[in-house]
């Protein structure tokens, strides 16, 4: 019987593209946040800081950033496991742990933003 290989060629391009699209989303968000801090005094006081994220548009854009970040981190961290962890069982466990952690982080961060 042929040994099964726990890697695939099918998801390569899709994830490669997703990594880049999420990178662009995060880069643009970083510039917006940087501009808000530099030019609008968003980090001058807690009131300003809260006001920035209470803004519905900013809340939505930040949630988008969070989702992009977690997807991006998933592709990146998965690549690290694939490069350095040989035993398939250990690698698979690490993949699952990474996914669970990232979904949890995304839910946690979005919850913070939605409760403001």
């Amino acid at each position: 019987m042929k040994a099964r290989i726990v890697v695939g060629a099918h998801y390569g391009l899709k994830d490669w593209l997703a990594q880049r699209i999420t990178a662009v989303i995060m880069a643009l968000y970083t510039l917006v946040l940087g501009a808000a801090i530099l030019f609008c005094g968003a980090a001058e006081s807690q009131e300003n800081w809260r006001a920035l994220f209470t803004n519905p548009l900013m809340g939505m854009v930040t949630s988008l950033f969070v989702v992009a970040l977690c997807y991006h981190a998933w592709v990146g961290v998965r690549d690290i496991w694939m490069d350095y962890v040989k035993p398939a069982s250990v690698r698979l466990t690490l993949h699952v742990l990474t996914l669970v952690a990232l979904v949890g982080y995304a839910a946690w961060a979005v919850r913070i933003l939605w409760r403001l």
Binding site: W49, A73, G76, V77, A101, Y105
Partner: peptide, 18 residues
């Protein structure tokens, strides 16, 4: 990798700051 490992710390800081 460092940013990924410190994500819980950073989200915690965001939560406290808001």
């Amino acid at each position: 990798a460092g940013l990924f490992l410190c994500l819980p710390f950073l989200i915690c800081l965001l939560q406290l700051s808001l």
